[in-house]
Design a protein around this nucleic acid. Structure first.
Lengths: 118, 118
DNA sequence: CAGTATCCTAAACGATACTG
DNA sequence: CAGTATCGTTTAGGATACTG
């Protein structure tokens, strides 16, 4: 009805929020990136993500698994090993990661141009 | 040096984290979207973002302004009006928003296929 | 209209230690 | 190695009320 003026506003916001709900926080995308680069083991992932702790990594891995973005496999080797691998679904996030990577790279240059930053 | 194997992992993670630092949270991108759709006034923005409160909107607007993504203009009219407009820099976020929009739309279909969701 | 002031809860994040 | 336990701090976010 009537003036469909700010209706299309919601149409854009809603899906973006859905996406944000999944990748929210500092860690989820970095974890996906690390695994996509071939780091499958818990300690290996941990070592490759600056500042992350076991506790946070553990929690985030569970979240990502719940969102069907990765799979946890336990191998009955000697000793038992655990591997995290991305699902095909996680690959659909690549355009998001690329857009963020591109923007973040540019942004970093921009802020380094004017002031300091970690 | 030696095995530069997980070095490129950081090269990807860092810019992504920089981007995430800026757009983090549920509200920043929705706010940018609302403003980009022509909603410039505080109440107008507020009305077009489901569930946001004055307090949160106020805080997020300040954050976005600090990141140079939008500009707050006060017009000495009768009564005083305030307008928020995006900076040209905010437009560089469009590919990010589009990627998120596309993925979020697909994701919503995916989860609606299997279970319920808000 | 354009916000601010309080108060509050829940979640994120972090440090350190510990277990099978 | 692959985590969990415990603790504490910080931040995001929400409810409600209020101001110029």
């Amino acid at each position: 009805m009537g003036s469909g003026e700010h209706k299309d506003c919601h149409e854009v916001i809603m899906p973006v929020r859905d996406a944000l709900d999944v990748i929210n926080g500092k860690w989820k995308l970095p974890i996906i990136i690390a695994i996509s680069r071939g780091h499958k083991r818990f300690r290996d992932i941990e070592r490759n993500i600056p500042k992350i702790t076991s506790k946070v990594l553990s929690k985030e891995l569970k979240d990502l698994e719940a969102h069907k973005l990765l799979k946890r496999s336990v191998y009955d080797s000697q000793p038992v090993t655990v591997e995290y691998t991305l699902t095909p679904y996680a690959a659909t996030l690549n355009p998001v990661i690329e857009a963020l990577y591109t923007w973040g790279s540019q942004h970093r240059k921009t802020i380094f141009g004017s002031q300091d930053q970690d």
